[in-house]
Design a protein around this nucleic acid. Structure first.
Length: 416
RNA sequence: GUGAGCGUAGCUCAAUGGUUAGAGCACUGGACUGUGGCUCCAGGGGUUGUGGGUUCGAGUCCCAUCGCUCACCCCA
């Protein structure tokens, strides 16, 4: 094979593409009811947009970005996630001068240079939502409710909502110190990965899957216990509201997110059947990011849904219903073929999906083709029909046949 | 970046180191001269991922390389 797509990117064909279209449609429907407008930001940004927001020493920035120099020597990066671009756009266009909250959603491809595996690709797609300008816990609750509703509308079940608060710029450093103190006494019991995490990002040690590390960190101090009064209140109120909105969740005090910009609320939606990459959606609050980008201090919260992971689950849980072909024209003879050709054109103009045969094949093989295409009807035009001025039809589901005068054909189609 | 498993027809897979690499599905045609699905028959389709090596002989064994998959790291 001479050409193949680069590693970790994929072509999406029918029938999967119909699932994608349905998911995108549902997202637009649900999000718009919550006041979210679509925003389309570029796929490329100056590299600093990502390094500044995601964090210099995260894996994404350190080794996963598609970065290149453009012809003028500027460093450009293919977006590895959506939030940074939306925040950049929000600040660049001074949207903080508009009434708060400003609410946006986006969908499109993201790029990370990683080894692909189940649920992970180099080009992957996210649907995300961002809400700027409010720090009220009701906004957090509302956003999580919207995510839940979207996932339900799209037809997913068996999902777990996990919730945590990782504090703010004030209280997180304090907790961090306490945790480092705790870990320092037990470093020798940690795995090699965790020893590295301990130095680089100690909160991650809590997330380790290994039995040994889990055990040593069993009695570790937990973030929720070290939140400052404001963060504690915020987290408590959020939980109250979620309960009253009937959004069930579990608090996971060990959940940490990989991007530096998160503050307070973080959440993940996971599924058992996704393999190692089990998060369908994730998000959180990022109250410092707008300021970081040079805007006024502006609280914000958002999430992103992984399209590939979502559609993978959907295709496991549901049958895919491709759009149905209404009719297939089976013709006998050149005159009939010509007639069918222009008739097909007329019908499509009226919005009917019809197809025909162009190869002058046997009637039998035309029927076979119609059947294979899942056509509801076969319309037959041969010498007899032309002479009588009729079109013969056969309903494929039960084999019922009949004739319709040409001039009534459109009416006939409308009625079936 | 690290580790493991797997590469044979469009797809799913057979073939003890030994003739001309097979089967099912799919595709095309016929049995049925103007009627699909079911059945039967026939046909087209392959550089066994690639390159080297061992051997009288390699799809099979060895090495390298490329690709795919899963996992680690990390994340949607």
């Amino acid at each position: 094979m001479k050409y193949r797509a680069p590693k970790g990117v994929q072509d999406i064909f029918p029938p999967e593409v119909y699932v994608w279209q349905e998911v995108e449609k549902k997202a637009k429907e649900v999000f718009s009811v919550y006041g979210y407008s679509e925003v389309r930001t570029p796929i490329i940004e100056f590299t600093e947009v990502f390094t500044r927001s995601i964090g210099e020493d995260t894996d994404i920035v350190e080794k996963e970005m598609y970065t290149f120099s453009d012809r003028a020597g500027r460093s450009i990066t293919l977006r590895p996630e959506g939030t940074a671009s939306v925040v950049r756009a929000y600040v660049q266009h001074h949207l903080y001068n508009l009434p708060s909250p400003q609410k946006f959603f986006y969908l499109g491809p993201m790029f990370r240079y990683e080894r692909p595996q189940k649920g992970r690709y180099r080009q992957f797609h996210q649907i995300g939502a961002e809400c700027f300008g409010e720090d009220d816990p009701r906004v957090d609750a509302e956003l999580i409710e919207m995510l839940k509703r979207f996932l339900e509308e799209v037809g997913l079940s068996g999902l777990n909502f996990e919730l945590n608060s990782i504090g703010c710029r004030k209280c997180r450093p304090e907790y961090r110190d306490v945790l480092i103190g705790f870990l320092a006494e037990r470093v020798e019991h940690l795995c090699n990965d965790c020893i590295r995490r301990y130095r680089r990002n100690p909160l991650r040690v809590l997330d380790c899957k290994l039995e040994g590390c889990r055990k040593t960190t069993e009695s570790a101090p937990q973030i929720p216990d070290y939140l400052c009064t404001e963060c504690k209140e915020h987290f408590g109120a959020l939980q109250q509201y979620l309960q009253r909105l009937n959004v069930s969740y579990t608090v996971n005090p060990r959940m940490v997110r990989g991007l530096d910009y998160y503050t307070r609320t973080t959440f993940e939606v996971t599924s058992e059947s996704l393999g190692a990459q089990n998060a369908v959606a994730a998000g959180g609050r990022y109250d410092g990011l707008v300021e970081e980008f040079g805007g006024p201090s502006t609280p914000a919260i958002g999430f992103a849904v992984g399209m590939e992971r979502l559609t993978t689950l959907l295709m496991e849980q549901r049958e895919i219903q491709p759009p149905g072909l209404l009719g297939f024209f089976a013709t006998m003879g050149e005159e009939a073929e010509e007639k069918a050709f222009f008739l097909v054109s007329e019908l499509r103009k009226k919005g009917f999906w019809v197809e025909m045969d162009y190869r002058g094949k046997s009637l039998k093989s035309q029927f076979r083709k119609a059947d294979r295409l899942g056509s509801r009807y076969v319309f037959i035009i041969g010498e007899d029909e032309i002479q009588k001025g009729v079109i013969k039809y056969k309903r494929m589901s039960d084999g019922a046949q009949g004739e319709v005068p040409e001039e009534e054909f459109i009416n006939f189609l409308t009625s079936v």
